[in-house]
C-alpha cells in the first residue's frame, strides 16, 4: 500500500523548528511532562526578540516551517496570537504551522468567538496550517481518564473540520500506549478516515507512542514497545487509505526504529526538529541534524527529499 501510494521510493522530511511559545497550561494532562503552573519558577512566555531570532536561525538553516505550539495560558488572548503571527509574517517568509485544536478551542472560548471565526482571524493574521496534536486517542473514555480538561473528540474533529473548510491543511496525530484498547485505536482511525472522506484536508497522519518519563501518567501506564509501534503504524497505513502520508516518529522511537517503520508503511521522516521541548522534557532527546536524517533515509534504501509543509518536494538528495 505504501508502495502503491508512493512508488518512487522517496522518503520526505521537512526542515523546521518547533517553537514552544509558553509552557504554562491550565489543562495539566496526566501524560504531559512539559506544562507548568503560571507561578512556577520555570514557567515562561517566549520573548518576542528570542522568537524572531529563532525564526531567523531556522531560515538560515534552510528551514521552511515553524511549528508553533504551547500550553493553554490563561493570560494570553487571541490578540496576542494574531499580533505574533502578523509580526512573524511581516518580517519573514516562512510557513507557520501552528496551534493544535486544544489551543484553538481555548482561544475561541476566551474570546467568546466561534471556532470558525477564531480560525479565520488566525488565518488572516498569517497562520498557514495546523498541526494535529492534542488528538491523543479520539475516544472520550480514554480522554476523560488521561486528559479530562482537554477538548473532547467531537470538538477536536470540529476544529479540524472548520480549518479544512477554510482551506487550511492540517495533520492528524494519535498518541497510543496509555490505557486505550484496540477498539479505541480503531475508533480513532475511523474518525480520522471519515473526516478525511468529508474534507480531504489532512496531509499526513502521525502515530506516536506515549513517552512515560517525567509525567504523572508515566508512573502507572506501561510503555508501548517497538513491536506495538510498528504494528499500529502498519495498521494506520492500511486503514487510512485516503490519507496520503504516514509519518515515522524518530523523535519518540529513535532513528533505527523509524528506519524500520519505513518498511511498515511510513513514507515521511518528519522534521529535523531543531528544537523539541515537549518531548525533551520527558527524557527523550535525540540530537539529529539534517545530514543525519538524509543518511538515515538513504541507508534504509530510500531516496531522501526535503519537502514543504504541504508535502511538495523541494529538492532531492
Amino acid at each position: 500500500m505504501r508502495l502503491a501510494l508512493h512508488p518512487e521510493r522517496v522518503v520526505t522530511f521537512i526542515v523546521d523548528r518547533n517553537i514552544n511559545y509558553t509552557n504554562v497550561c491550565v489543562n495539566k494532562c496526566s501524560f504531559c511532562a512539559f506544562y507548568k503552573d503560571e507561578g512556577d519558577e520555570e514557567a515562561y512566555i517566549i520573548d518576542e526578540g528570542v522568537l524572531m531570532e529563532k525564526i531567523r536561525e531556522t531560515i538560515s538553516l534552510g528551514g521552511t516551517q515553524i511549528l508553533m505550539q504551547g500550553g493553554l495560558h490563561p493570560a494570553l488572548d487571541l490578540s496576542y496570537y494574531t499580533s505574533m503571527l502578523q509580526k512573524i509574517k511581516k518580517e519573514f517568509t516562512i510557513n507557520v504551522h501552528g496551534f493544535s485544536p486544544p489551543e484553538i478551542a481555548y482561544m475561541a472560548a476566551k474570546a467568546g468567538l466561534t471556532v470558525r471565526d477564531t480560525l479565520a482571524a488566525l488565518k488572516d493574521a498569517g497562520l498557514d496550517s495546523i498541526p494535529g496534536g492534542g488528538a491523543e486517542i479520539l475516544s472520550d473514555r480514554v480522554r476523560s481518564a488521561i486528559s479530562p480538561r482537554k477538548i473532547n473528540t467531537a470538538a477536536w474533529l470540529q476544529v479540524m473540520r472548520e480549518a479544512h473548510l477554510l482551506g487550511m491543511r492540517t495533520t492528524a496525530t494519535m498518541m497510543f500506549g496509555t490505557i486505550e484498547t484496540p477498539e479505541d485505536i480503531a475508533a480513532h482511525l475511523e474518525a480520522v478516515w471519515r473526516l478525511q472522506a468529508e474534507t480531504g484536508g489532512f496531509t499526513a497522519f502521525i502515530p506516536w507512542t506515549f513517552q512515560p518519563g517525567g509525567s504523572p501518567l508515566g508512573r502507572t501506564a506501561g510503555h508501548a514497545t517497538a513491536a506495538d509501534y510498528l504494528r499500529v503504524l502498519a495498521l494506520c497505513r492500511l486503514y487510512l487509505d485516503n490519507v496520503d502520508n504516514i509519518q515515522a516518529s524518530w523523535v519518540t522511537q529513535g532513528i533505527k526504529t523509524a528506519q524500520v517503520a519505513l518498511r511498515f508503511g511510513a513514507n515521511d521522516f518528519g522534521s529535523t526538529m531543531i528544537e523539541e521541548n515537549v518531548v525533551k522534557a520527558a527524557g527523550v532527546a535525540f540530537m539529529v541534524t539534517k545530514n543525519d536524517i538524509i543518511n538515515a533515509i538513504r541507508s534504509s534504501g530510500f531516496k531522501p527529499a526535503q519537502r514543504d509543509t504541504f508535502y511538495n518536494v523541494l529538492n532531492y538528495f
Partner: peptide, 12 residues
C-alpha cells in the same frame, strides 16, 4: 548494542 526497540523487533 541494538537498543531495546530493535532488539525486540529482532524477535520477528
Amino acid at each position: 548494542m541494538l537498543g531495546e526497540k530493535i532488539c525486540q523487533t529482532a524477535l520477528y
